[in-house]
């Protein structure tokens, strides 16, 4: 199972018949295992890593540090869930250190992101403060280095 997940993690579009070839697990079995992993939520979804800058679609990402006041009984969960529902928010994480929640927020312009934080997040009752860090350049994302692919330096024929 781990083998199949590892292959899919690197190439979500690979066919089940190719997975069967690569692993020597019969194809019907592969299909069944993938179905099961999907059902159990082990496979959350199939994504494509896109370099939007390169596609000419400018968009802006920012990391937002949020300090919050935890609430009785629900701790950080209620406020985290509440923030997570905004479509602008790409990810929400509870972190250790001098702030509590770390958000990744996406918008078309810096202004849009700044206003979203100022209007939707900062005013929430439990939020004490926010700090916004705009992302200027992404070098690595989800395990993939986004630099130009290096050319192979091997000779064409070696013993």
């Amino acid at each position: 199972m781990k083998e199949i997940l590892e292959i899919l993690e690197n190439d979500a579009r690979i066919s089940t018949s190719e997975i069967a070839t690569l692993t020597k697990i019969p194809e019907p079995q592969v299909r069944k295992m993938i179905k099961e992993a999907e059902k159990k939520g082990i496979i959350r979804k199939y994504k494509t890593v896109i370099d939007w800058d390169k596609a000419g679609e400018e968009c802006v990402y920012a990391i937002i540090e949020v300090k919050v006041t935890p609430e009785r009984e629900v701790g950080y969960d209620a406020i985290a869930e509440r923030v997570a529902r905004f479509p602008e928010v790409v990810s929400v994480r509870l972190v250790s250190g001098d702030h509590d929640l770390s958000l990744l927020v996406k918008g078309k312009t810096m202004k849009e992101v700044a206003f979203f934080i100022a209007e939707k997040v900062a005013p929430l009752e439990q939020v004490q403060s926010t700090v916004t860090h705009f992302i200027l350049k992404t070098y690595k994302q989800d395990g993939d280095i986004l630099l130009e692919k290096e050319e192979s330096k091997r000779l064409a024929i070696t013993p």
């Binding site: 091997r154 000779l155 064409a156 024929i157 070696t158 013993p159």
Partner: peptide, 21 residues
């Protein structure tokens, strides 16, 4: 092996399965 190496050099778009590394 040398001979093939020389043949491949200067050719474009070769897929080499000749590499021992």
């Amino acid at each position: 092996i040398r001979k093939y190496f020389e043949m491949v050099i200067g050719m474009d778009d070769v897929i080499s399965l000749g590499v021992g590394e």
